[in-house]
Simulated assay, not measured.
Amino acid sequence: MAEQDLGAIARAIIDGNLYMTLATADGDGRPWASPVFYAAAEHTQFYWVSAPEATHSQNLAQRPEVSIVIFDSRVPAGTGQAVYMSATAEHLTGDDLEWGSTLYPGAAERGGRVFTPEQLRAPALYRLYRATVSQHSILCPRISGPCHEHGHAFDHRTPVSL
């Protein structure tokens, strides 16, 4: 399958969903996964709002490296596809907070709550975060049986460029 087609699959998944699974780890490497409502910019930057006391927010303060998965859980078994991403996340302040708050929560029809920058600064309850993706991949879209392109007989990821 052409790289352009794989990129189109990834973009459609990102554009068609509201929640991503954010995987963080604490300073000792203990994993933690959290579903978060997101807004995406150029399919490479993902914004979400969380309390700084939330476990995933505390983990990001210790270890900014994250993994992200976006998928549609409503499709029939065996037909699912997902976008897997490696990223670095950060709590936004200053100009980044000002800019990010213009992007989050995305288009009004997505239904997310709008926040002003003042509502995302201490001592407010929430903060704005951004993950910048360094790598995207999807499941290799083979129909069935072994993958002739990659030589695998099992589900495996293939990198995509967006």
Rank of each mutant, 00 (worst) to 15 (best):
Y47E: 01
P76N: 02
F37N: 05
D96V: 00
G100L: 00
T21P: 00
Q81P: 13
N59R: 03
F115I: 04
A89P: 02
T93Y: 03
R127K: 13
Q58N: 06
S57H: 11
S101H: 04
E3Q: 14
T102E: 00
S86L: 14
Y47I: 01
H91W: 10
L125T: 15
F115S: 04
R11N: 04
L6M: 06
Y84F: 15
G112P: 00
G145Y: 12
G27Q: 08
T44E: 14
T132H: 15
V114K: 04
S144M: 12
T132V: 15
R113P: 02
T132A: 15
A40C: 13
D5M: 13
G100R: 00
E98W: 12
G106M: 05
M85L: 07
A107Q: 06
A23I: 12
A8Y: 03
G7I: 05
Y129W: 15
R63I: 05
A107D: 08
F46T: 05
G16F: 07
Q58G: 03
V69D: 08
Q58W: 07
H150M: 04
S57T: 05
H43W: 10
F37E: 06
R157T: 10
P123K: 06
G16Q: 06
V75L: 03
A131R: 14
E65K: 05
A54C: 05
D5Q: 15
A153L: 10
D5N: 12
P159D: 09
G16I: 08
M20E: 12
V83A: 08
L128S: 11
A33G: 09
V160C: 07
P31Q: 00
D15R: 09
T24E: 09
P31R: 07
G106F: 07
I68D: 10
G78A: 01
R11G: 00
Q45I: 07
V36N: 03
D96C: 00
C147R: 06
T24M: 07
R74D: 12
R74P: 13
F46N: 09
F46W: 07
P146Y: 00
D155A: 14
F46E: 09
R63N: 11
S67Y: 02
T55F: 08
Q58R: 15
I143L: 13
T88E: 14
I9Q: 05
H156F: 07
L22R: 01
N59P: 01
L103Y: 10
S34T: 10
E149V: 14
D155Q: 14
F115K: 00
L60P: 13
I138D: 02
A33N: 08
V160I: 09
F115M: 03
C140R: 00
R157I: 01
Y38V: 02
R130D: 13
M1Y: 01
C147K: 03
I70W: 03
D96P: 02
V66R: 06
A39Y: 12
R30G: 05
Y126N: 15
F37D: 03
Q58D: 02
L60C: 03
I68K: 07
V49Q: 04
D72C: 04
S134N: 11
L60N: 02
E53V: 14
